[in-house]
Design a protein around this nucleic acid. Structure first.
Lengths: 261, 261
DNA sequence: ATTCCAGCGTGACCTGCATCACGCAGGAAC
DNA sequence: GTTCCTGCGTGATGCAGGTCACGCTGGAAT
């Protein structure tokens, strides 16, 4: 089991993996190509005309990445886009002194490195795999040629970038306009349950992140997140059972988040 | 001079102007249409194939807006895009309690409302004119049809959205990762001079914003900005002469901003 | 001249949260 | 078993900066 990956560089004590690592199965559903992908219909970028999908499959190269792998790093010269087939990928940026801000968590169907690829700049974020993922890589040149050939795709790209921008603005609002860390945490938890769990009276979702990561998302410190969690539990706003998060008093959290009417 | 504009709504004591107000000159260079626009070559969206520009001119409607006018508001149903020909427009978002965060200042050549228009969501920001501006409006339906017809334009749109996203990420970094207000102000001033002034040893630029607005950009309070300015002046980092800002110790500011090597 | 108001300058106060500093538990490696 | 190491819980401390409060100034309106 040793030396499965080639370690190309060490930064900040974290291991960075080569761009195109192994293709070994990781106990996850393997998607051979986009034509036969079972999720094709429901995903914004996979659901294209048959011609386009066929063409697409000739320029993509699929790979599987283990937890902890890095697809690309902030500041690297752009190589191309990664289409996430499954798993989940964390997109973050960090300052010189090691502080990290997680911008968003990408779910299956999203295209990473889009902004950098179309503008030709460096990657503006770092993409780390947090749940074992499969992703299709498309080199910048191929991708741009593909866009030129299929105008419909360029429109899709613009749409997806619109979504991403929308999310970014929401994030800025949350970080920039809130008064307290509690407000931000409440908002984050509600958002998370809205996107990753059921929507009953008492929303429930699995939360695999560490307190540290949550802190990096809401722009706070690990200790503060821990304290807030115990506080919320004490006030019976929520329960944590293993990795399951149950919101027991949604309206109280909404009031804290400033979302309530 | 009264009743030049139709007041359609009052929000937060500010006057909101109708979407397509008067066409009176405001002492600024009037741009009749994109075909004859003197800046056509240098601007990302104006510089298209002759056919496209011709088509474009049939669906755009030009208007001039006075200082204080609002092109669109956060949460409004999307109507279409505004191409800024000259002047400058402030894009902001605000919370329920009145706090405002200025996301960016749009300069001539930029297309506003792009993300909302391609995704079909609501406008995610509010656009206020801060320097008398001319802008071309294109209704959403026309714009999307135009994009479908000219694949090249869709690519341009994607590119511009890439730029905007890039800027948004930079803004998030600045707000989310910095430790002090001084750090953010220093970064803002350096950025501003880089984009709006000469680049000599002692960068100099005109800064027309109030302390309040700067506070809203860097996510701080008016008093803090004032205090920091006096502090910076005292330390001889900069000078303010009227609306002119002169940076006298660039490296000190860079060190503060964490930009220095 | 007078009024008005937006924008700036400054002092006083006080609180939220970052930071440091530990201890503890559970899993992995050997 | 022992040794690590990661992630969580919690106390003590300090201070940056938000907030309130007030005064001053210069320009616009009348």
């Amino acid at each position: 089991m040793s030396r499965r990956f080639r370690i190309i560089r060490r930064v900040n004590e974290d291991t960075i993996w080569a761009g195109v690592p192994m293709r070994a199965p990781y106990g996850l559903e393997i998607i051979e190509n986009c034509v036969t992908c079972p999720h094709r219909e429901e995903r914004i970028f996979c659901n294209l005309s048959p011609d386009a999908v066929q063409d697409l499959s000739t320029i993509t190269s699929a790979s599987a990445y283990p937890k902890g792998a890095t697809l690309f790093m902030e500041g690297q010269a752009v190589r191309g886009v990664f289409i996430v087939c499954n798993g989940s990928v964390k997109l973050s940026t960090s300052s010189a002194d090691g502080k990290t801000l997680i911008v968003r968590i990408a779910d299956p169907g999203e295209v990473l490195g889009l902004a950098a690829t179309v503008t030709g700049k460096q990657y503006e974020l770092t993409a780390d795999v947090i749940e074992p993922a499969q992703a299709n890589f498309i080199a910048r040149g191929d991708f741009l040629a593909f866009l030129e050939k299929y105008g419909e795709v360029a429109l899709r790209v613009a749409q997806q970038m619109g979504e991403i921008y929308h999310a970014a603005v929401a994030e800025m609002r949350s970080i920039g306009l809130s008064h307290s860390a509690g407000e931000k945490l409440a908002r984050f938890l509600l958002d998370w349950c809205a996107g990753h769990g059921n929507q009953k009276e008492e929303p429930r979702a699995t939360l695999t992140m560490t307190h540290e990561e949550i802190a990096q998302i809401i722009g706070s410190s690990r200790e503060t997140v821990t304290r807030l969690f115990t506080d919320f539990k004490k006030k019976r706003y929520l329960n944590v059972e293993g990795s399951a998060l149950i919101i027991r008093n949604k309206s109280a959290l909404e009031k804290l988040a400033g979302t309530a009417v």
